[in-house]
Design a protein around this nucleic acid. Structure first.
Length: 449
DNA sequence: TATAAGGAGGTAG
DNA sequence: CTACCTCCTTATA
């Protein structure tokens, strides 16, 4: 079943940002800009009458968020109630941050107000639209407006959080929100979120924003799980479920179709989970970035889920498994070259898994992960013939060391690693190269994709 | 000497 | 049972 993108187009028009921006935004707000005369696809929760569901408003500049590569372009910014929309967007141009909604639901513009009723009182504006959430780019280069991209927002924040999982209470997310370098980077006016929440600048209280975003993601994850009958934990997906999810995401974003999806993405859940952004893009240049981003959001929603929620699903598994290992940015191999791997402490239970969640990645996936980051690991392992899946281990010691770190096997060496690789010969994952060369191996199809 | 190849037993999920 | 991990022997460049 196809779930159209969920969106509530709370369009906040461009305007000169002034200290009196509330009035400016509110006065300029034009409900007629709502697409389809206010027909707004809502989330499953909404359509099912959940009163507390708060949809996210996302408008993609130029129509399709993530088309091309949303993550390499100046990131559009999405945020709940940060919507700077496109007037009369093309067919289903509104792309929800997280996901899917089961079916379009016609709502009146009052829906927005109902949603806003969940939030603290708006500033003294004219229509109750949370205009302070509008973050607008300078109009210098185009008439289009920047969007607050919750995907990138969350992703970056969570990446940071992942890197320091012990930091509590979304401290880094908060810092991110308030980081002026971020604003400069994206040519944004300062966020005026504090206005909505009564001034977090003074109270440091952005929890409502964070919790809304994460809660939203979780709801959409649940909806998609129900739709596809899949686990919230991507690591438990079968290869077929992986492709179902990919196809659904492609459909939802109106992305160009990926030919031979089943061979392009042959991984099962764990395989997909480990794939780097580079790998996604290398396989599907047009859509890989978006797919990767959506997967990251999915992970974030699951991994950050409260224990109480996670207990109902297998998503709880993720809580024990740092998603760091799946980040496009490689796990910090460099800075922790000599990092002790889970040193045994007398009297303490042996830690079976380190930050990488040792047992969840296959060697061939790990190798591909390294291969996908030539800028970082090109001196250790590189493709000789990408199309044929032929690669060479340039630095056997380093590759073995990295593998040992990932699997929490300090005694790993190339001899053992290569033995594991040779096991792949029988399994049809790898094969001997035509002309035997030292440290040169070859993936079998479709593993080389 | 480093690596390739593969047998064999063990381990953990 | 799978996917390694570990140790080993033998062969080769």
């Amino acid at each position: 079943m196809f779930y159209p993108r969920e969106m509530t187009p709370q369009i906040v028009p461009a305007g000169v940002y002034t200290p009196d921006a509330f009035t400016s935004y509110a006065d300029n707000f034009d409900l007629s800009l709502l697409p389809c005369d206010g027909e707004v696809p809502l989330s499953p929760a909404d359509s099912q009458g959940s009163p507390d569901y708060i949809p996210t408003t996302i408008f993609a500049e130029g129509g399709l968020l993530g088309k091309g590569d949303a993550w390499t372009q100046p990131e559009p910014i999405q945020f709940p109630y940060f919507g700077v929309g496109l007037p009369s967007p093309p067919q289903e141009p509104i792309l929800g941050v997280f996901s899917p909604s089961p079916s379009p639901v016609t709502v009146e513009s009052t829906t927005i107000k109902q949603e806003l009723a969940l939030l603290p009182p708006s500033p003294p504006d004219s229509c109750g639209v949370p205009s302070p959430f509008c973050v607008k780019s300078e109009p210098s280069e185009s008439d289009t407006e920047a969007c607050i991209d919750l995907d990138s927002f969350l992703q970056k924040s969570l990446e940071t959080i992942d890197a320091q999982p012990k930091r509590q209470d979304h401290q880094l997310l908060r810092e991110y929100l308030q980081d002026t370098t971020f604003q400069k980077k994206h040519n944004l006016k300062p966020l005026a979120l504090e206005s909505l929440f009564g001034g977090w600048g003074a109270r440091g209280d952005i929890e409502p924003v964070i919790s809304l975003a994460l809660e939203h993601a979780r709801r959409d994850v649940q909806a998609t799980c129900a739709t596809l009958n899949i686990s919230p934990d991507p690591q438990q997906w079968t290869a077929e479920q992986v492709r179902s999810w990919l196809q659904l995401t492609i459909d939802q974003f109106n992305l160009p179709p990926v030919e031979n999806l089943e061979t392009t993405f042959a991984e099962d859940g764990p395989g997909l989970y480990q794939m780097s952004e580079e790998e996604f893009i290398s396989r599907a240049p047009q859509v890989g970035g978006t797919l990767y981003a959506q997967l990251e959001i999915w992970k974030a929603a699951c991994c950050d889920a409260p224990q109480t929620q996670a207990s109902t699903t297998s998503a709880g598994n993720n809580l024990a498994w740092s998603p760091e290992s799946s980040h496009s940015a490689e796990p910090s191999d460099d800075e922790d070259e000599e990092m002790p791997v889970a040193p045994a402490v007398e009297g303490a239970p042996v830690q079976k898994s380190n930050r990488h969640g040792s047992s969840h990645i296959h060697l061939w996936q790990f190798l591909k992960e390294l291969l996908a980051s030539p800028q970082k690991h090109g001196t250790a392992i590189r493709w000789l013939d990408r199309n044929k899946g032929v690669f060479k281990i340039e630095d056997s010691v380093r590759v073995a060391k990295l593998w040992g770190q990932r699997k929490n096997r300090p005694a790993m060496n190339y001899d053992k690693l290569s033995r594991s690789i040779r096991q792949y010969y029988k399994k049809g994952i790898m094969k001997k190269t035509e002309r035997s060369q030292r440290l040169v191996y070859q993936f079998c199809h479709p593993y080389c994709l």
